[in-house]
Amino acid sequence: MEITNLDNVRKRRLRGGIVGGGKGAFIGAIHRIAVELDGQAQIIAGAMSSDPEIARSSAEDWFLSRWYDSYEVMAQEEAAREDGIDFVIIVTPNHLHVPVAKAFLQAGIHVMCDKPVAVSLAEAESLAAVVETSGSLFGLTHTYTGYPSMREARQLIADGALGQLRKVLVEYQQDWLMEPLEQDPAAKQAQWRTDPARAGISCCVGDIGSHAANLLEFVSGKQIESLCADLSAFVPGRQLDDDANMLLRLKGGAKGVLSCSQVACGEENNLNIRVYGDKAGLEWHQQEPNTLLFKPAGQPWQKLRTGVNLQSEQAQRLTRTPGGHPEGYLEAFANLYQLFLSDVRHALQDEPLSGGYPTINDGLRGMRFIEQAVASSKAGSIWKEIP
């Protein structure tokens, strides 16, 4: 790559595109805010719907320079432009994640994808093969790993502050699917998430249980070795699970419990994690994300606060505001994009990558978790190993 091109990459905002996220979508606007928060990138092109009118009007609402009603055409045309996009965000229903990602990876465009990565493990493995051969970056938005407090928790455990891990409890409770919302023609989010053709083999476990499992493995540094799962569809007529409870065995001997529900009355987005070792424990609540509780044996609890006394290099790097100025979901999302966009610049300049964000490997782990949870429950809640 010529020096002039290197200078151009260093001196300009990265150019981003988006597939999905059109009118009626939930997460697309969140991605846009997050990716543009630091001023390092701007979304300029999109295929925000397969419906031409919705694609056009959604792009106009976002003031995009270019719009498409076909992601295949978008990948080809953007790759051919001198001012084409450097990366693309995928925020479609699950069944489109892999075909869209493959189209852009094979066109030489870096990809950030919503989770879960696919609708099946086999499909995820086919994508992993394309990621490996394409030479392009692939990131996955397991957002909760972007909180500074979770980076601090991970480092404390890695440094041995908790001692030998014994137990991990993680729960993710919501109530938005308490009623058969998918029967409402206007409830597009509920419709596709409860539809096996678009969501895959699971609703609740795939949608939020995968987040809980990813956070557990990220913070503890231990992979889930096996699980025993009980999945339920409490709402009559629902095709996929809306609640799940699991026992977990982690590598190294620790045990765990994972509970997730989308029919837990009164809950909003109640994600919590507690980790216990033989020296200390940790506790964190996503709805109060700036506080991490450290519980040393025989001593008073310590309240570790974002922007005040988080010590790890990663936590400090991802902290954005002075102490007492709350940071939340958008900032955590933006932290993942900060790390990903840094590597996009590195890749465009043929420089070593830094990492720090979820990748295709996390996507594969997530699909193995989902498939084994479903298989365990269908077999009568028997223990299943995660390969």
Results as ranks from 00 to 15, higher is better:
Ala199Pro: 03
Gly200Arg: 11
Ser202Gln: 06
Cys203Trp: 08
Cys204Trp: 04
Val205Trp: 06
Val205Ile: 15
Val205Gln: 07
Asp207Ser: 13
Ile208Ala: 06
Ile208Gln: 10
Ile208Lys: 08
Ser210His: 09
His211Trp: 08
Ala212Thr: 02
Ala212Val: 03
Asn214Phe: 04
Leu216Phe: 00
Glu217Ile: 03
Phe218Cys: 07
Phe218Arg: 11
Val219Cys: 03
Ser220Ala: 14
Ser220Tyr: 09
Ile224His: 01
Ile224Tyr: 01
Ile224Arg: 02
Ser226Met: 02
Leu227Pro: 01
Cys228Arg: 15
Leu231Phe: 04
Ser232Tyr: 06
Ser232Glu: 12
Val235Phe: 08
Gly237Lys: 10
Gly237Tyr: 11
Gly237Arg: 12
Arg238Ile: 05
Arg238Trp: 02
Gln239Phe: 04
Gln239Val: 12
Asp243Phe: 13
Asn245Pro: 00
Met246Trp: 00
Leu247Phe: 05
Leu248Trp: 00
Arg249Glu: 11
Leu250Thr: 07
Gly252Ile: 10
Gly253His: 04
Gly253Tyr: 08
Ala254Asp: 04
Gly256Cys: 05
Val257Ser: 01
Leu258Lys: 01
Ser261Lys: 02
Val263Trp: 03
Ala264His: 11
Cys265Gln: 15
Gly266Ile: 03
Asn272Val: 07
Asn272Ser: 12
Ile273Asp: 02
Arg274Ser: 14
Arg274Lys: 13
Val275Met: 09
Val275Phe: 07
Asp278Thr: 05
Asp278Cys: 07
Asp278Leu: 07
Lys279Met: 12
His285Trp: 09
His285Ala: 06
Gln287Trp: 07
Gln287Leu: 10
Gln287Tyr: 03
Glu288Pro: 00
Asn290Asp: 15
Asn290Ser: 12
Thr291Asn: 06
Thr291Phe: 11
Leu293Lys: 13
Phe294Arg: 05
Pro296Thr: 09
Ala297Phe: 09
Gly298Cys: 07
Gln299Trp: 02
Gln299Asp: 09
Trp301Asn: 14
Gln302Cys: 12
Lys303Glu: 15
Lys303Leu: 11
Leu304Arg: 12
Leu304Gln: 03
Thr306Lys: 10
Thr306Pro: 12
Thr306Ala: 13
Thr306Cys: 15
Thr306Met: 10
Asn309Ala: 05
Gln311Thr: 14
Ser312Val: 06
Ser312Tyr: 03
Ser312His: 07
Ser312Lys: 09
Gln314Arg: 14
Ala315Asn: 06
Arg320Cys: 11
Arg320Ser: 11
Arg320Asp: 09
Thr321Ala: 15
Pro322Leu: 10
Gly323Ser: 06
Pro326Asn: 13
Pro326Cys: 03
Gly328Leu: 04
Gly328Glu: 10
Tyr329Glu: 13
Tyr329Lys: 14
Tyr329Ser: 08
Tyr329Val: 10
Leu330Trp: 06
Glu331Trp: 02
Ala332Ile: 02
Ala332Arg: 02
Ala334Val: 07
Tyr337Val: 08
